[in-house]
Design a binder for these strands. Sequence first.
DNA 1: TAGGCTTACGGTTGCCGTAACCATC
DNA 2: GATGGTTACGGCAACCGTAAGCCTA
Lengths: 196, 196
Amino acid sequence: MSHRLPPLNGLRAFEAAGRHLSFKAAATELSVTPGAVSQQVKHLEQALGVPLFQRLHRSLILTAQGEALLPEVADAFERLSKASDTVAKALKTKPLRLGISPTLSDEPDRLLARLAGSKRPPDYVRTVATDDLADLLAGRLDALLRPGPGPYPGLHAEVLTLAPGFGVHEKASLVVWPGLARCREFILTRSLLVKD
Amino acid sequence: MSHRLPPLNGLRAFEAAGRHLSFKAAATELSVTPGAVSQQVKHLEQALGVPLFQRLHRSLILTAQGEALLPEVADAFERLSKASDTVAKALKTKPLRLGISPTLSDEPDRLLARLAGSKRPPDYVRTVATDDLADLLAGRLDALLRPGPGPYPGLHAEVLTLAPGFGVHEKASLVVWPGLARCREFILTRSLLVKD
DNA sequence: TAGGCTTACGGTTGCCGTAACCATC
DNA sequence: GATGGTTACGGCAACCGTAAGCCTA
């Protein structure tokens, strides 16, 4: 299944240009200059060996080939966009899965509530009683609270000092995937994502 | 509809790597080095803010997010590939649509047969009695034979000298989209595409 | 004359190969 | 030691912006 794919950026430019029937409008959408779009589309046409637009005076018309290609390309990009958004924004839209080591507490929700300084745990957090780093590594958890300081190579960990009365452990590590900075604030406020 | 798309090359690398569950195999398929694939995937993971693979010793496992993303991405690229192939190879797989000016002959097939030097016209050519350059420009024709020398700005034209008996015109132009060199040979042999 | 497409040119970015390193088997 | 993934570094191609030109309404 060796996908022979044409230039992806060219397809992207073609899709926008075809939707707008304007290189200028496509350029605005893509945050580039019309010249860039023109070059990308020309490049794509050369790669395919097929003209996609008929250049009229200050407007564009799709050729028969362009007309055939556009809906497919648009649909494919739509799919990529949707899927990526869903995956990327899962942290923001779905309940945050927080593993809490049974060693720390046999009542994870109460522990979380105390960490948050409130009587009820945040409603966007779903606690799971687990100690298993593999759950985090496999993506089944978004964060994991474990006793001790770590280290956790390849991950991002933040050491919390637990107030007295949390059990025998004074220190605990809040472990998340790298790319999530200041994870404690994130867990407790669902903000401060490191990206954007 | 401002598609917020992640890095397309990263998605491409991810798709191949996810299918093979191996950066090395993906690299082979993509004709690059494993290092390149590693970088592309890492780049994508950073852009999405989400881990897609769990790196084990000498193998890979998809994370939950990767598992969710892979089929969508694979399907999208499959679609792009299919659509592009269909459009790009139309010239090679579908009958070649050759317009012949009624001025030259009211029996286009006979004229084509004489041009080809045979009794029957090539079976892969479908002649259309038309004079309209717009048919070519809009992609409804692959080539157009018209009397006179042109010029045809923005197109590729080849002047043919017609043998006596073709009518009142001595010279005719075989007009095609640029990117098709030596169009006469192409029409008569269905080969010599300029690309690859 | 204005507006949109094209083209030439140059700078920057991003992609990729090389090579060295690491961690297992 | 072999294998597969990662990283640092450097070269090169691709991409893009600028500016000038072209063409027609």
